[in-house]
Simulated scan of single mutants.
Amino acid sequence: MSRPTWWPRGGPRLPVPSAPGDVVAQVRGAHLTRGGTEVLRGVDLEVRAGEVRALLGPNGAGKSSLLGVLTGDLPVTAGTVALDGHELGHWTTTELALRRAVLLQSVSVSFPFTVAEVVRMGRSPWRGTPFEDEDDDAVTEGLAAADVTHLAGRLFTELSGGERARAALARVLAQRAGVLLLDEPTAALDLRHQELVLQLARRRAQDGGAVVVVVHDLGLAAAYADRVTVLSGGRVVADGTPGDALTPELLSGVYEYPVDVFAHPSTGRQVILPVR
């Protein structure tokens, strides 16, 4: 869909679609210090339209911090962060929300909103634009994609942890931003819904979007990501396709535990397991 770059005069600058392979977000030389500790040390990252990029590494490696830098929630102490060709400070809060949608590890709602109402909150950046009339369709599609249509009338506060995670994902999908930034979206989910989330990410990329996902399951990353970035101690230690980057030597060193990487006997796809 072709989108104008502004609406109305003086209103937010609306995004335009990116071509597959275009760099839509970029981190250069990022350093981040939190609580006196340097948690990112000279990190570079490119996010391209049409790709799923997984951020991997052990606890404390800097994955969520790097995602927070991309969202703009964590200002870097050195380096630059850009979205759609401009540093984050170039965009207003609304303009950022039109370009990237963020799913946090934990989502809390203090008031008794229904799931449908929470999902509709994802449409708020589009209020007053020509695309406000897409709200109903976007909410319906988000609910269905995250498998929470049957929960639409339930209070968000009464849901289980996994149901809340899926409802929060539906809100992010309804936002229809070109860049999805997902922080451990599979953590509270059962096996079926873990696969569902990464399949959604894969489809979003195939439709021209860009997805960055923090995930602990190396097998999911190998199966669904186009590229992976492995962090350790706040530094990028590997970056590339899963087949190139996720080697047993690298993973065993990063996780300080022996890891096997082999081809599935039926499909030939990469399988990653701890040595047991």
Rank of each mutant, 00 (worst) to 15 (best):
L198W: 06
T37N: 09
L169E: 06
H216F: 12
G142I: 04
H193Y: 13
P185Q: 13
L169R: 05
G60P: 02
V254Y: 02
D260A: 14
Q270E: 14
L218W: 01
V76K: 05
G68M: 02
D207Y: 04
G253S: 14
L169S: 06
T129P: 13
L250M: 05
L151G: 03
L66C: 07
R13F: 13
T229E: 01
A54D: 00
S124N: 13
F111G: 06
L180H: 08
D207K: 04
V211M: 11
A146S: 14
P265E: 08
V259Q: 00
H90K: 03
D260H: 12
V275Q: 15
E117D: 14
G253T: 07
E51C: 11
E163P: 10
L83M: 14
Y257H: 14
L169F: 11
G89T: 13
A187F: 03
A30F: 01
E249T: 13
R53W: 05
L173I: 11
G35H: 05
V211E: 10
M121D: 07
V23L: 08
G240I: 03
T157V: 04
P125H: 11
V47C: 01
E38I: 03
V107W: 08
T5V: 14
D147C: 11
A205D: 05
V139H: 03
E141T: 08
V43W: 01
N59R: 02
L200Y: 03
L98T: 11
L218E: 02
M121P: 06
E256M: 07
L218V: 03
G10L: 09
V211L: 11
G68F: 06
R203V: 08
V24L: 10
R48M: 13
Q194N: 08
E38L: 02
R48V: 11
Y257I: 00
Q175Y: 08
L198Y: 04
A54Q: 01
A25R: 04
A78W: 06
V109F: 12
A177W: 03
V215C: 09
L251C: 02
D244E: 15
T5A: 15
G128M: 13
R164N: 09
E184I: 08
F262Q: 05
V24G: 09
L180D: 07
E163F: 14
P242I: 03
L181G: 01
L70R: 02
E46I: 05
T33M: 00
T93G: 14
V69F: 10
L155P: 00
L67K: 00
A210I: 03
H31A: 10
V39A: 07
A223E: 14
D133M: 06
F156E: 01
A146T: 09
G62R: 01
V43H: 01
G85E: 11
